[in-house]
Design a protein around this nucleic acid. Structure first.
Lengths: 253, 253
DNA sequence: ACCTGAACACCGTTCAAGT
DNA sequence: ACCTGAACACCGTTCAAGT
């Protein structure tokens, strides 16, 4: 494990690299949250000085980018060949969606960073990896070429937005105490919504009263299916690919 | 306009209020960007000290929240009565979607703040206003009650995500010089994507090659229509509401 | 009740100096 | 080439003191 220059006076056990720094940053972000990632804290974690970090990373944005890249890289591994048609199409879409969903739930800070990458760096590796994962499905779904971008966008924005929302809910629920399950969290949000002014917020109140204690992942996938149904309905060529499956309940009831 | 105590020694022309502070914050955010909103800058803008601002606002998060509220309040005015069926349903959805789209394009910092509000404060006025605007459409669309939340989520996340993406693109294009139009911006992104590794990013490259020089708003609405089509296909009761319209091209070609 | 402005704690970033 | 750590600029927040 130690390097070949195994003298007693080697500078450090293992030298700093952008990757090691990214890992440490992820750890800090997961542990202490977005506010917990500071150069002083990270320096101490790596037992070095802030200057050393700046040698490998250009600034804090770059540091956060490296952390994001590290997580996305393992959550959405590069798949060279358009994956074989082993799974039915719908399940492949679900797999990509859930990979992102789980990554964001495990690292709540990720949702902010992904949004930042999307907007700041649409040609960066993070954006490309996500876009690739989703557009591959869209193409396989026989969406016509002129609509690839629209369809991918719709799916991607829903996935990232809903996953972020779920992660935030999970974090809020966690704050209410580890013993409280999701049910009581939804209960409390539902209740807060019910207390809105009936005159200005009639529909929100109505929706709140129908917020069943659903399974979050099922709910998330129901949204994905809703958009897939939109593809099938809008592009006849895409229809057989998704609709030919055994008809699945599109939502909880 | 001046208060009743109209002595020469009144402390200031107009006293600070949360609203005046929010307005000034919006101005700073629009002018100088997210990084430009600092307490020193805001204090000077209002010709006061930082302490005065803290009397009306609890901290910076609250300050940003007030700014967000101010913008959303005018972009999405409260509509007491479920708006009359004057317009066809699809156009009402478009109207809400475009209101958010335009607000985000005019205030690019808004997209980050809306995401923050959604996750931190799901029961706050900003979230409620947006949710109300969209869920009202979903309900009017005859989506069944147990799917109101899913359907509203799908539409909302797409709208906010796509609008944010557009605002970011617009900002990037602006940076390339005021004379460059959107076309050349899309050209450059498309080109950057084309240079990705063909082995790992085949689909992204394929999509890039079909990135026509579209109208951004049309593209955005095409995505909305895609999701509406999903409603119609998934919930038979919703079908006649959206499908009965003169069939509109769902996308540019 | 509302405002003033100095003071404090803290963080991102730089840089001359080391190995 | 890579690391050290002190120093700087700047910002969020507080607070004793004013009106």
């Amino acid at each position: 494990m130690t390097s070949r220059t195994d003298k007693k006076s080697q500078r450090r056990a293992d030298p700093l690299t952008r990757e090691r720094i990214a890992e440490a940053a992820v750890e800090l972000l997961d542990t202490a949250g977005e506010r917990g990632l500071t150069f002083p804290a990270l320096s101490e974690h790596l037992s070095t000085g802030p200057g050393a970090i700046y040698w490998h990373v250009s600034d804090k944005r770059d540091l956060l980018g490296a952390a994001t890249e590290a997580v996305i890289g393992t959550a959405l591994p590069a798949q060279p060949a358009p994956s074989p048609q082993a799974q039915p199409q719908r399940e492949q879409v679900h797999a990509v969606a859930l990979a992102l969903y789980d990554a964001i739930e495990a690292h709540p800070w990720l949702s902010t960073q992904l949004a930042a990458q999307l907007s700041r760096n649409p040609w960066g590796p993070v954006t490309a990896r996500i876009f690739e994962g989703i557009s591959r499905q869209v193409i396989a779904l026989n969406v016509p070429a002129h609509s690839w971008f629209t369809a991918t966008s719709a799916l991607m924005h829903y996935i990232l937005g809903a996953a972020a929302q779920n992660a935030a809910n999970a974090a809020s629920a966690r704050e209410l105490g580890p013993e409280v399950n999701r049910a009581s969290f939804f209960e409390s949000v539902s209740q807060a919504w019910q207390e809105l002014d009936p005159h200005t917020y009639p529909s929100t109140r109505a929706v709140a009263s129908h917020l069943s204690d659903h399974d979050d992942r099922e709910q998330f996938l129901a949204g994905v299916d809703l958009i897939l149904a939109g593809f099938a309905a809008t592009y006849p060529s895409a229809a057989e690919r998704t609709v030919a499956q055994p008809p699945r309940r599109p939502d909880n009831s």
